[in-house]
Computed example of a mutant assay.
Amino acid sequence: MQKELMEKFVEVYGEGGEIREYFAPGRVNLIGEHTDYNGGHVFPCALTLGTYGLARKRDDRKLRFYSVNFSKLGVIESSLDDLIPSDQAGWTNYPKGVMWAFEKRGIQLEHGVDFLIYGNIPNGSGLSSSASLEVLTGLMLKDMFGVEELSMQDLALIGQYSENNFNGMNCGIMDQFASAMGKKDCAIFLDTSTLEFEYAPVQLKDARIVITNSKVKHSLVGSAYNDRRNECETALEELQKELDIRTLGDLSEEEFEAHKSAITSDICRKRAKHAVYENQRTIKAVNALKADNVEEFGKLMNASHVSLRDDYEVSCEEIDILVDLAWQIPGVIGSRITGGGFGGCTVSIVKNDAVDHFIDTIGKQYKEKVGHEAEFYVVDIGDGAHVIA
């Protein structure tokens, strides 16, 4: 992989100079969905799938971008003097947004860059290809320009800031945090209200994590994702008239039930219920995993999907078919939608001796019901973003 990408970089941009290599992973969230912007807990892990980047500093202020995945687009040129979002910029809005966010922090970028990327995260799958690219860009800038004061956690925050304010996607911190801070064979139990976190070993013994891609591509910018956040904010404002809370994540299930009548909209009440209950489910799920109770973890995953389907309404027909099929297969410990929703992937914990049957059975039945094939990834948990030696 590294040799091929280096050869491609030289083919596209020519020889000379110091070419540096980077990697930032995608993520899958095991449980804790749509809690990260509601002050709750999440439990993601970094994948060994991700985005590779090769970069070389230039003597001028020109920016040149090339994606192996979108090779037909050729080299897309821009400049450090043109860090403005535009439809014409396409995927380069993500790295440009990070450069813009660096400069917003007072970090002046004096030299342009030749940048080549390749990602093996399926596009539109909900496994955070955009966050991976943002963290990759941040790491590249930190390394190439010697910005020692920035930590990996800072890079996650910069990535989130750029996606919120440059790309118009009002996401929480989870995706960028998982990509920047991931640790092999561990998930991250993160309190998004304080950014306190711990690494929890994911020891599934005789089971594996299987991601199923519905092949339904979702676009979250300008979509119902931002609506959900606004609905939760409305619910919070109404609850704050009765309660001294900063976020929905501050509430227990009992406190929510006692005060939910303060939320005047039925829709906003459902959204808030999911945020509160999902946060508590996540805390319970991590405790179950620590107690080596994988079966209980799976039950909480299933309950998470029901809540996302019915209360938060971010699932879709294809995803529900995948989850319903998974629940019927012996050896499936738990299965749920993962990611922002409106398509994308499911995540399942499947016993080793059932994985082949899981893939074969769901693959056939999904195609019969939907008309196109799903994709399956039996994944490993990897490290966060890093410079490739």
Results as ranks from 00 to 15, higher is better:
2 Q>P: 05
5 L>G: 04
12 V>K: 13
14 G>F: 12
15 E>L: 06
16 G>T: 11
29 N>H: 08
29 N>M: 07
29 N>R: 05
33 E>C: 11
35 T>M: 01
39 G>M: 08
44 P>R: 01
48 T>K: 13
48 T>F: 02
51 T>S: 14
55 A>E: 08
57 K>Q: 15
58 R>A: 13
60 D>Q: 12
62 K>F: 01
63 L>Y: 05
64 R>H: 09
64 R>Q: 15
70 F>R: 10
72 K>M: 07
72 K>R: 15
72 K>I: 03
74 G>W: 06
77 E>R: 13
78 S>D: 12
80 L>N: 02
81 D>Q: 09
82 D>E: 15
83 L>Y: 04
84 I>S: 11
85 P>E: 12
86 S>R: 13
87 D>Y: 12
89 A>W: 04
90 G>A: 14
91 W>G: 08
96 K>P: 00
105 R>T: 04
106 G>V: 03
111 H>F: 12
113 V>C: 13
114 D>N: 13
119 G>H: 00
120 N>V: 08
120 N>S: 13
124 G>W: 05
124 G>A: 11
125 S>Q: 06
126 G>L: 04
127 L>S: 06
127 L>M: 13
127 L>T: 01
132 S>G: 11
144 M>S: 04
148 E>A: 13
151 S>V: 09
151 S>F: 12
153 Q>P: 01
161 Y>M: 09
162 S>R: 00
164 N>S: 09
165 N>R: 11
165 N>W: 00
167 N>R: 00
180 A>Q: 02
180 A>W: 01
181 M>Y: 11
185 D>N: 15
187 A>G: 15
189 F>R: 03
191 D>T: 09
193 S>W: 10
195 L>F: 13
196 E>L: 13
197 F>G: 00
204 L>P: 07
208 R>W: 07
212 T>V: 15
214 S>H: 06
218 H>D: 07
220 L>D: 01
221 V>Y: 05
222 G>C: 08
229 R>H: 06
233 E>S: 12
241 K>T: 14
249 G>F: 06
251 L>N: 02
251 L>A: 00
254 E>A: 15
257 E>I: 00
259 H>N: 15
261 S>F: 08
261 S>W: 00
262 A>V: 05
262 A>R: 06
272 A>S: 08
276 V>M: 05
277 Y>H: 06
278 E>N: 08
279 N>W: 03
285 A>Q: 03
286 V>A: 01
286 V>I: 15
287 N>W: 01
294 V>D: 06
299 K>Y: 09
301 M>E: 03
302 N>D: 14
302 N>F: 12
307 S>F: 02
309 R>Q: 14
310 D>S: 12
312 Y>E: 02
315 S>K: 05
315 S>Y: 09
319 I>L: 14
320 D>H: 07
322 L>W: 04
322 L>F: 06
323 V>A: 07
330 P>Q: 04
331 G>P: 04
332 V>K: 04
337 I>T: 04
340 G>F: 03
346 T>A: 10
350 V>G: 03
356 D>N: 11
358 F>W: 10
362 I>S: 05
363 G>T: 10
368 E>N: 14
368 E>W: 00
372 H>W: 10
377 Y>V: 04
378 V>K: 12
378 V>D: 07
381 I>E: 05
